[in-house]
């Protein structure tokens, strides 16, 4: 019985290792993009109104659209509709990728665009990825002033954003609960053994 369990665990660990190896072979890291909340780069195009499209989305949107050149391979598109819906599209002109890497990116939500010229970009393939945010609808009275910013990249602070929630307490409660359950099970087993109950 014990040998069967050992063999099963061995096979399972081998399968996990193979899966991990396969995923690492096709692993690819997409570049970081600035956020539309504090965009960076040269403005390539700016439309204060009009109808705009989003890759991978058949809907057309009315609103403001600004496109930034982040660097030679990255473009940031910031769309804010008249309803206050924001859509950030990260456009990535990638280097040569393997089929596995392309499929990996697609599984991560990236949309393959064979020809960027249809979207006003270079006539080369791109990957695009959309993210939503809420924005002040164009034309709505607000702060005015300078919205477009040219800021330093975000490594100035180097660490992740502060944890401001209750996760420590939640995990602590789970841990204590788990320990108590385990103690209860062990106690029960010990009692049954003492009483000779199988």
């Amino acid at each position: 019985m014990k040998s069967k369990i050992f063999v099963s665990l061995l096979i399972l660990s081998l399968l996990i290792s193979l899966t991990d190896f396969a995923s690492k072979a096709s692993a690819i890291e997409a570049p970081n993009f600035p956020l539309c909340t504090s965009p960076q780069g040269e403005v390539l195009a700016s439309y204060s109104s009009g109808t705009h499209g989003v890759p991978g989305d058949s809907t057309t949107y009315l609103g403001e659209d600004v496109v930034f050149k982040v660097n030679e391979n990255q473009v940031l598109q910031c769309l804010c509709t008249i309803d206050g819906q924001g859509i950030q599209t990260n456009w990535w002109q990638f280097e040569a990728l393997s089929i596995d890497q392309i499929e990996t990116l697609k599984s991560q939500g990236w949309i393959f665009v064979p020809d960027g010229s249809l979207w006003g970009l270079k006539s080369v393939p791109y990957f695009a990825k959309n993210a939503g945010f809420a924005c002040r609808p164009p034309g709505q009275p607000g702060a005015g002033g300078e919205v477009i910013s040219v800021g330093a990249k975000g490594e100035i602070l180097g660490v992740s954003l502060a944890p401001t929630g209750n996760i420590v307490y939640i995990l602590g409660a789970f841990l204590i609960g788990g320990i108590l359950i385990l103690a209860g099970v062990l106690l029960r087993l010990k009692t049954r053994k003492h009483l000779g109950i199988k």
Binding site: T37, S38, G86, G158
Partner: peptide, 15 residues
């Protein structure tokens, strides 16, 4: 102006 939900690693909002 904007509201977004980001990962903790996204420190670009602090730039």
């Amino acid at each position: 102006e904007h509201i977004s939900v980001v990962d903790p690693e996204n420190t670009q909002i602090l730039a």
